[in-house]
Nucleic acid binder design. Structure first.
Lengths: 244, 244
DNA sequence: GAGTGGTCTAGACCACTAC
DNA sequence: TAGTGGTCTAGACCACTCG
């Protein structure tokens, strides 16, 4: 019973199926309203969602235009490696190299809003794509969620999926810092690259809907594995992680 | 005469001045409507803008909350190095290393939607921050805008500014691909780093409001100069380039 | 000048939060 | 249970595009 969602879904599908090819104009707002039996306001809400997903653009006086075919959900997109890989039709793999509880570092305590000396669960995972090492993930979970994380089968390829199923909508906010670094000795050995070769780094802090930090992470990608794709249309940025 | 803009500006200022500190609840929508003499719909439009800027967040049933103080305008933010640097209180500099018209490569023709063999204006600029080499920018402008670019004083530190003043709102859409690369011989020499050391790369294509591509660029940053900051709140990504 | 999207209003009901 | 944001409607007028 969320009408604008229904309209958005119908349009998204028409675009995905090619009924509305890239560059084509959409029906007018009035037509869409009549077609779906809703008011124009609801149609505009649906169109705003598609615009925020990078699928359409608009200019006053001219019809809405199809600008892309791929929907991107930037939060899920950036957070779960396994979900992303599968949506690309690639085979994700994951191996837990180490996992231990320890006191938070000063930096971690700040990021996760923990008391000094609070506990974190530190996990180092090597992730692969179609059998090749692709990324090294160093994640620190806040102590209050550590039990739930430890209960997850370490062979599960998506910790995010499991947490979501067990605890509901845990993540609502995230911040990512993207830059480049030189591979250290350990990075190089695990990823199978030469020492000091370039890696793409994404550091992340995720929080609950109420703003409570859950985990922070330092992910390092071999070059040539992914790029981050920022598509900005009429001031609305749309984010995606892209395979190469 | 754009009421929602007025409401958004007032709230933005209240947040910037600290009258509404981070974490504080906003007045209710009904209160804001009464206060500004507008309808609730207009207030909601204003709040949606602030949410898209990463300044506030909301949950059904609870009041809107202030979540940040810095507005980010992701398109301008990513496109103009000089504008960005000045907003950070840093001193940008720029030097044109080479500038020449030549036929577009196949890749450029595709990105800029030019006819095969169409002309581009290729410019290589070395950009600095507070006197230090920071970034190498290889830009190719579509032939139809080359005249305007050539008329710009090569010492102007912001080509984007000048184009904007001369031609109006030239840019409305952009796509950025962010990854890491190893510095080539030429990159290393110009940026003052060792060969094959890591660089943060951002490749860009910008287009007019009507979707016509204007320029494409390959920017390479020394590591430690900037990070890209992606702040995602309730599904809305907000982008910024951050100095280190 | 006709068509179309952008803005705004006034009122209604529902879903969720917080007390 | 009262308060508050989320959704939806019906109608109006304006600003811009396009033939």
């Amino acid at each position: 019973m969320v009408l604008h969602r229904g309209v958005a879904d119908a349009l998204r599908q028409a675009i995905a199926l090619g009924a509305l090819p890239v560059g084509a104009p959409l029906p007018t707002e009035a037509e869409l309203a009549a077609e779906h039996g809703v008011s124009r306001g609801t149609v505009r809400h649906a169109l705003a969602i598609l615009a925020a997903e990078g699928l359409i653009s608009s200019r006053q006086g001219a019809r809405h235009l199809v600008r892309g075919t791929e929907r991107t959900q930037s939060l899920a997109e950036l957070r779960s490696f396994a979900q992303w890989a599968r949506r690309q039709g690639r085979q994700p793999s994951g191996e837990v190299i180490s996992m231990a509880r320890r006191p938070a570092t000063v930096r971690e305590a700040g990021l996760l809003q923990l008391d000094p000396g609070g506990e974190v669960l530190a996990v180092l995972r090597l992730r692969g794509l179609d059998g090749e090492p692709a990324m090294l993930e160093r994640t620190s979970y806040a102590g209050w969620i550590a039990d739930a994380v430890e209960r997850i089968d370490p062979r599960a390829d998506s910790v995010t999926d499991r947490l979501h199923h067990e605890l509901g909508a845990v993540f609502a906010h995230a911040e990512h810092l993207i830059d480049a670094v030189a591979a250290g000795v350990r990075d190089a050995a695990l990823l199978g690259v030469r020492r000091s070769s370039p890696l793409l780094r994404a550091r992340r802090v995720s929080a609950t809907p109420a703003g409570r930090p859950v985990e922070c992470s330092d992910d390092r990608y071999r070059i040539g594995v992914v790029t981050f794709d920022i598509h900005t249309t009429s001031g609305v940025p749309v984010l995606a992680r892209r395979a190469l």
